[in-house]
Amino acid sequence: MQTEGITLMDTLEIAGRRFNSRLMVGTGKFSSNMAMQAAMEASGSEIVTVALRRVDINNPADSMLQYIDTDRYLLLPNTSGARDAEEAVRLARLARAAGCEPWIKLEVTPDPYYLLPDPVETLKAAEILVKEGFNVLPYMPADPVLARHLEEAGTVTLMPLGAPIGTNRGLRTRDLINIIIEQANVPVVVDAGLGAPSHASEAMEMGADAVLVNTALADTANPAAMGEAFKLGVQAGRLAYLAGLGPQRGTAQASSPLTGFLREE
């Protein structure tokens, strides 16, 4: 799409790899694998996240890999379930041993109630995994100081949360994400808490490089429609960012001419 010289085809570059889509999707909690595939397809996403878990020996389910075309999507395994750096590093190594490219969405969430990322353990794990050659995409609190530390450690993105995972509450951390975007030298991907296309659009309007959603797509009667809605929301927000939003003002500024009124002066 070409709009007055601004192209939506501007690409997202992470670790030297280019992506046309700025929407990443998670594959958890869908009612069926067919619903998940439909949402992925409609979203236009090129990066999808998966988790690693023990096989249920008594009732082995199909591997998620059967349902994801890895020629088409970059598989981004996460370290969900890790409570400290050691567990996260173990999961990342297992993902690589399973044949994945060395890309890892680093998640360290010791608290099961809010699932907030542990800044200390996340940084510790990032330092180890970067040294082991992983492209590390860290899920992180929206903390601009931590963002700098992670970037110094060599992470290839920053993934601050908008709100706790699965809450659909939108950009509750907006002002801090703004500072992270202003300071970052790597792509900023807003992850977690985005529940509506307008939330995704808002993040993109602010200058986020991408967003990641899962619950918003899985938690609806029509995941495919919601996938497309998020795709459009992300595109709208990106285009608005590239166009440049007008300044906010405290008083009215007429849009129509202030001359030629049908009245006596």
């Binding site: 998670g26 909690k29 998966v50 591997s63 998620m64 890999l65 041993a97 399973a98 899962n214």
Partner: peptide
């Protein structure tokens, strides 16, 4: 706690007290 190389483990025998983890990809965000 040691990851097994897929090309090498098939003939490996299990021993008393071993701890084996079998892990796979599942849906996740």
């Amino acid at each position: 706690q040691v990851i097994l190389n897929a090309n090498e483990y098939r003939e490996q025998q299990l021993k008393e007290g071993d701890k084996l983890e079998i892990i796979q990809f599942v849906g996740g965000g």
